[in-house]
Design a binder for these strands. Structure first.
Lengths: 252, 252
DNA sequence: CCTTGCGGTTGACGTGACGTCAACCTCTAG
DNA sequence: CTAGAGGTTGACGTCACGTCAACCGCAAGG
């Protein structure tokens, strides 16, 4: 069963414009499109939307959300992580409530109150770092259920595939290969195929990721040092991005 | 005791740029400024900041926040209102947590889950209306402690002052008076004086509100029908704005 | 057969709340 | 007297959409 864009918008309490935006940046492509380009969303898309809104409400930028959803392929484990964040948010909310109550009683009794107490629970920056750190660490460690579910040989194969892809990218970058060359484009094709093989990513059913999704990720590889490290630093990541963008532009 | 801009920024967990922004739009002027334009904030400013952050976290735009803080002059009553909102936010958060837990167990047991359950607690629009409605109603009703604290004759005087000001504005607007004329400017002066007389508003200590604050409020009078109604509808409010802006530009 | 309306579509531009950066000022310490 | 810390004021950039115009496909009604 699939739903129209307005249905989804009403269900999630966002505007249809927002959903179109998420499609445009490749964050949430509709599961299918009908006559006249009408967008249709299935249950998997709704689950993805749930996670997007969860992370958005926690204050993550949309590009980071794309990264998290890309790296965190085990939905159950990811949701447990979200639960932690939500409970932390509840803590902060309680502290804000307590601080307001302190201000209130102080105001009514004419007491003076310390500024630290008054503004307790507001500092949001520390927490934000914590979020990205958690997700980054999680993505790197891959110590989650999905990873264990792969089994020993599955893990080895996955590692090997990823390692070789990264190595080939870094190697080509070092040799100064042209991003538009056949060699680089072949690497880009491998990379796209790899992305498409990950369950839960957009385009997984069609066997290949949508153009905007690949472009968005490629941009993130250069923007985020954590990912750039996989491809030989920022210069390497830049090379990867140029090749991937060219490939996506032509083939996807 | 006053604090530097960086101190306040650290305490509240916002950037100094944000505080400068709030000054620029007249939302939170520093309580005093020293050599070289250095901003200093006292305890009253910190309390105002607390309320600003409270309302900001609840999703209100800064212009609306200015309106709320302008109309809601009784801090204690306002804080009780904020507490209600924060508790409502806690409710929504709990619902989001519950919905994530439902999704999680359904995912692990392989059940299907209804989209309504999955996205419960996300709809933010309904709530937003509720907030502005509440504050609007509050501002209109003026049935709060501050109001009662005025006493019967104080209330009558206040009502009369406000009513005459509004009537004179509406009357001048109907007669097609030029906003730049002496008559309109005299009305603007009365209006500014009235604003400055309200305890808790910026500039109250200096006896006259800062220019940006008046300009921001004037813009809100035309933007918000609730306030425009006080001044003879949108046309009336437009006239009021033009006169006020001209006055603020020259005199404040 | 035409048209009216509904529910979408794609650009393109606007906006709110800041981030970021350059150039400059003022005071303190070495 | 010079360097550095901690500010200041523009001015421009950015992110996540809002808003608006112009258009399209399809069902119903005259």
């Amino acid at each position: 069963m699939t739903r129209s864009i307005q249905d989804v918008a009403r269900l999630a309490g966002v505007s249809s414009r927002t959903l179109r935006h998420y499609d445009q940046i490749g964050l949430l492509p509709p599961s299918s499109t009908g006559a006249g380009g009408l967008r249709h969303y299935d249950d998997a898309a709704l689950r993805r939307l749930q996670r997007i809104l969860l992370l958005r409400d926690l204050g993550l930028p949309l590009t980071d959300i794309a990264g998290v959803l890309d790296e965190q392929t085990d939905e159950a484990h990811a949701l447990r992580g979200h639960l932690d964040q939500l409970r932390a948010e509840q803590d902060r909310l309680s502290r804000r409530i307590a601080s307001v109550e302190r201000t209130l009683t102080a105001l009514e009794k004419g007491d003076r109150i310390m500024a630290e107490d008054m503004l307790d629970g507001f500092d949001h920056t520390q927490y934000k770092d914590e979020v990205t750190e958690r997700w980054g660490a999680d993505a790197y460690a891959r110590s989650d259920a999905w990873w264990r579910g792969l089994g020993a040989e599955g893990q080895a194969a996955w590692k090997e595939r990823m390692r070789r892809l990264g190595e080939d990218w870094a190697d080509a970058a070092r040799r100064g290969v042209d991003p538009a060359s056949d060699e680089a484009q072949a690497l880009a094709a491998r990379h796209a195929e790899w992305l498409g093989s990950i369950p839960g990513t957009p385009g997984h059913e069609q066997g290949r990721p949508p153009k905007e999704y690949v472009v968005g990720l490629a941009e993130m590889y250069v923007a985020d040092e954590r990912f750039a490290a996989n491809y030989g630093g920022v210069e390497g990541a830049t090379f990867v991005r140029d090749a991937l963008v060219g490939y996506a532009e032509r083939e996807l």
